[in-house]
């Protein structure tokens, strides 16, 4: 019994979405990538969060190390120490990374990055090239480290007996208090109200068109995974963009720029409305080998809006 709703999916549609890769290698597209190429890609696209050696930055996941720590007090669960299947790493990098610009890597780039992650876990040598052909030859150290949920056998019988109701223990002592650690977020609802923002009346409309700025704020959502603006802004995957319009390129403190961008900065590149638009329209053409993994804004109105928004961030 069917209702005849929906329509057949085309082959191209299935190919576009059916990307998952299985532990036995099914779903892997042909391709290859070397540790050396992977290192370069990793430094550009991944190291901001995962560290140059895949060791993890701040709270971001560490991808390497942690051998023989799974039974320790704080196990370090990395691709090398924990992940049972290499297919998982390929599949995840391919479909969900880089963070903020998923599905932008070519198949060869994914092979190369996964090869580098293996290398950073000392699982392959530095001349290793990973491909669809040798994929299943890589041995994952924790492949046998998993068991299927056994709660039904080990726990449910123990936890399914009639419980004690009275005089169940001799004494009750407090053994630990949360207040000692004090990691609970402050309740700010009782805090003093924020001071009214100072309103200054501009004599003439010197700044960008407010409507365009508002439109730009929406466009900026696409940038916000990597860039911050405004009060308390910090460098993340990309540099802080407060005051970027009119600023020399490569000038944000404490940000590691690509070589390509640093070279153009030395040549005197200034981020004005025109250069920003040109860059954001086609980042890879305007600045080949720069590390911003953003494909570019297609619409002129989005380009105008984002520049207006950035102009308003002083």
């Amino acid at each position: 019994d069917t209702l005849g709703l929906g329509r057949p999916a085309t082959e191209a549609e299935i190919k576009a979405w059916d990307l998952d890769v299985r532990p036995d290698g099914r779903g892997l597209p042909p391709g290859s990538g070397s540790v050396a190429d992977g290192e370069e890609l990793f430094v550009d696209y991944c190291s901001v969060c995962h560290g140059v050696f895949a060791e993890g930055v701040d709270n971001w996941p560490e991808l390497a190390g942690g051998d023989d720590t799974l039974a320790d007090e704080d196990p370090v669960k990395t691709v090398g120490s924990y992940w049972p299947y290499l297919s998982t790493a390929w599949d995840y990098v391919h479909r969900s990374m880089p963070y903020g610009n998923a599905q932008s890597l070519t198949h060869d780039e994914v092979y190369a990055i996964v090869a580098y992650i293996l290398y950073s876990n000392f699982l392959v040598e530095d001349d290793f090239v990973l491909s669809h052909e040798n994929f299943l030859e890589v041995e994952m150290p924790n492949a046998d480290g998993f068991i299927v949920d056994d709660r039904a056998e080990t726990e449910y019988p123990v936890f399914s007996t009639a419980p004690c109701m009275t005089d169940c223990k001799d004494s009750v002592e407090i053994t630990m208090r949360a207040r000692v650690l004090d990691v609970t977020p402050e309740d700010d609802s009782a805090a003093a109200p924020a001071p009214e923002p100072e309103v200054t009346q501009a004599a003439a409309p010197a700044g960008p068109d407010p409507e365009l700025v508002a439109a730009g704020e929406k466009v900026f959502k696409r940038c916000a995974a990597c860039h911050q603006v405004g009060e308390g802004a910090q460098n993340r995957v990309g540099p802080v963009l407060t005051g970027i319009v009119g600023q020399p390129a490569g000038a944000v403190a404490d940000f590691r720029y690509s070589k390509a961008l640093e070279e153009r900065a030395e040549e005197g590149l200034i981020w004005d409305a025109e250069t920003l638009k040109a860059f954001l329209a086609k980042p890879k053409e305007f600045l080949p080998r720069n590390k911003m993994s953003f494909p570019g804004l297609r619409k002129d109105e989005d380009l105008a809006a984002i520049v207006a928004f950035l102009q308003a961030q002083e």
Binding site: V79, W83, P84, Y85, T88, D91, G145, F146
Partner: peptide, 18 residues
């Protein structure tokens, strides 16, 4: 055996098996 069912959302037991 995606990332969310291997590296995450698996439960490490005392002996290190998960």
């Amino acid at each position: 055996e995606s990332r969310e069912e291997t590296s995450k959302y698996t439960d490490v037991l005392e002996d290190g098996t998960a």
